[in-house]
Design a protein around this nucleic acid. Sequence first.
DNA 1: TGTGAATATGACCACCTGGTCACATATTAT
DNA 2: ATAATATGTGACCAGGTGGTCATATTCACA
Lengths: 212, 212
Amino acid sequence: MPKATFFNLPNDKRSLIISAAMKEFSNANYDAASINQICKNSNIAKGSFYQYFTDKLDLYVYIMTLAVEEKIKFFSAIISEFHTLTLLEQIRLLFRKGVEFANKHPEYAALGEQFSKEDNELAKLAVTKEGNKQAESLFIQMILNAKTKGEIDSSVDSLALSLLLQSLYGAVNKYIVGKLENASYEYNEEDINSLVDSLLNIIFHGIQNKVD
Amino acid sequence: MPKATFFNLPNDKRSLIISAAMKEFSNANYDAASINQICKNSNIAKGSFYQYFTDKLDLYVYIMTLAVEEKIKFFSAIISEFHTLTLLEQIRLLFRKGVEFANKHPEYAALGEQFSKEDNELAKLAVTKEGNKQAESLFIQMILNAKTKGEIDSSVDSLALSLLLQSLYGAVNKYIVGKLENASYEYNEEDINSLVDSLLNIIFHGIQNKVD
DNA sequence: TGTGAATATGACCACCTGGTCACATATTAT
DNA sequence: ATAATATGTGACCAGGTGGTCATATTCACA
């Protein structure tokens, strides 16, 4: 956690530092990100930085935690009403909400995309230790729940389906972040949503021709 | 391409350099990988390195090209007999061959996994420009072919299915490389293959319960 | 106005990077 | 043996890194 001095800072100065750090950590991985750059872009001296944070890792964990909290806040509303929905509806909502989140908070989405590629084990561990990793088991819970309700075929391998959904969710995010990086590209949320629908349609109904 | 001097080297010295470079580039991304380390691990002087390669990028592209060539050689046999197989058989073969490749050449697999996370645009571009990127359009070709043969439902979104297969292929590779890194873990190729079968079963038949 | 605590600062440190270059050593051809 | 060419070498360079610290400034309270 940042030191008390950091939280005593005037709001605009503090948020300037945060946004500079977010920008740096979404453009470079942990080791490549530069504290010097963050200082330069937020107009603070190197010495000041170390009055706010104990070290680089301290800042990194703080920034990533902010992103996670924002995402949880964004998703909490829909998760609470999951029990009223079918698995298909749950998954579609999850994916669409993910698209919406990336659209509304591209900085956080870019941060997450960068984190998914992170090499530095220390940095990865520090972040996952801090945040609750409920997300990774969410799919499994949903799948098991749907099985008991008889919504999906019991012969389906739960682990495989979870892996499939996770990798697909990651792919969609990566796709969106890639689009958003191209400022020139005209981004269309509806196009992505119809792609998501196509994907879910495949997963739920399969691709094999039933006529033969 | 490396300079002539490099290819004049005695075989064992040359392959020592190659293996040291492969090790470095599979443990760190392009920017983080260290030429000093490669020199140290292959017992050559810094000056010698620059008699063999024009610069870091030269070595990087060379190493990645070796990996791509090895993979193409490995897959060429099965691709040539694709026309005798159904889409399901093609995809299953592709995935299984991928698992086998990662098992037989873990160094190359780790290299590919690292490349998929590569941040440095220059390095990425230099590699993709060199190698033929036939792989990325392979799935699309297979899908369109299967559609004309009526093997899969024509309403299936080809692009979405291709994205799904690609991301799944990447996820499986990542999964395997992760397992292989844990030397302690007892690796079982059959377990992975049955996971692949579960995944393909989902894609071909869907997960929705047909009883309701 | 004075005093002590909080905060701001940038020169500095040790260490690393990719790349260069003058020089030393082999190898080969004459 | 001599000359010419090909290789090997490591000190060195400019420029970057995360982190430190003595000092200067600002602030709050008496």
